[in-house]
């Protein structure tokens, strides 16, 4: 890990949330951490801390992670009150320790929202996101085999917005950062991703209605603060939320017997 040129070494104090289980009361633990190379990622730093803890006979800090390349959405902790840390558009696994200074105290907390109950330490249960997707985030009508390129024309703007929305990795930073713990950014990204493309039209109104209503069973009400976009590692735009709001009203007004025949 070291030896790659001019690596700085950091000595830090971690203030980590430790909680034994879903119903246990948690508290912060102060852990001194020494000799962290600044080209490590935040998760690699946590790995080192855990090795230290194991050597001392303690129980390692539990945290979620998988790909460690910013594409799966498994990782995510609150770092100094910022979802995924201080760097914009970056997941926790992609956050380098060079974003911190030697001697810093770093507060590490799990996502906090009723929809995301804490399982242990920094791990939260994000299954409500799965329920939102289960309730409509798919295309179940037969859209045929892969079509020839350019067979279905899609306007560039629509495909751009859909693709930008599809970048959402479902990490939950939007809910975590939201003062209302609302999941509007996640749900609207999943909706834009399909509602803007031709294959998504047949089930568009049913999808919008069901996904919004599932979301509202678990999360708070959006007040348009805009914290979610700032926290989002994929920088999903607030415009998706406005688009979802518009589609939700339409989904209530649409005559379902006509959907599938009449596009927007």
């Amino acid at each position: 890990m070291s030896g790659s040129g001019n690596t700085n070494v950091l000595n830090l104090t971690l203030k980590v949330w430790r909680q034994e289980g879903p119903n246990a009361t948690g508290s912060f633990d102060s852990i001194p951490v020494e000799g962290i190379a600044d080209d490590m990622s935040f998760l690699e730093m946590l790995d080192i801390v855990n090795e230290q803890i194991i050597e001392q006979g303690g129980i390692p800090i539990e945290f979620d992670h998988d790909c460690r390349e910013g594409i799966c959405g498994a990782c995510g902790v609150m770092i100094n009150g910022n979802a995924h840390g201080p760097k914009k558009g970056t997941t926790t696994c992609q956050l380098h320790m060079r974003n911190f200074e030697d001697g810093d105290e770093i507060v590490v907390e799990p996502w906090r929202a009723s929809g995301f109950p804490i399982m242990r330490d920094l791990v939260v249960d994000r299954s409500p996101f799965d329920h939102i997707v289960e309730s409509g985030g798919y295309i179940s009508v037969n859209t045929g085999a892969a079509p020839d390129a350019n067979l279905i024309p899609v306007p560039k703007d629509a495909s751009d917005m859909a693709m930008d929305a599809a970048a959402c990795i479902g990490c939950g930073a939007c809910v975590a950062a939201c003062p209302n713990s609302a999941a509007q950014l996640f749900t609207s990204a999943k909706l834009s991703h399909m509602n803007l493309l031709p294959q998504g039209q047949a089930e568009r109104w049913k999808r919008t209605e069901q996904m919004v209503e599932t979301m509202e069973q678990f999360f708070g009400a959006c007040t348009n603060h805009g914290e979610c976009t700032e926290a989002c590692p994929k920088e999903i735009s607030l415009d998706n939320i406005a688009f979802m709001n518009r589609d939700y009203l339409k989904s209530k007004v649409k005559n379902r017997k006509l959907t599938g025949q009449v596009f927007p």
Binding site: K15, G81, V107, R112, A113, P179, S181, F218, G220, A221
Partner: peptide, 19 residues
Amino acid sequence: MSRRSNPQSGIDGQKKYAG
């Protein structure tokens, strides 16, 4: 509704995190 969705502090304008 937003209060119910925030575990401890709840009301808007109050911080959810110690950071």
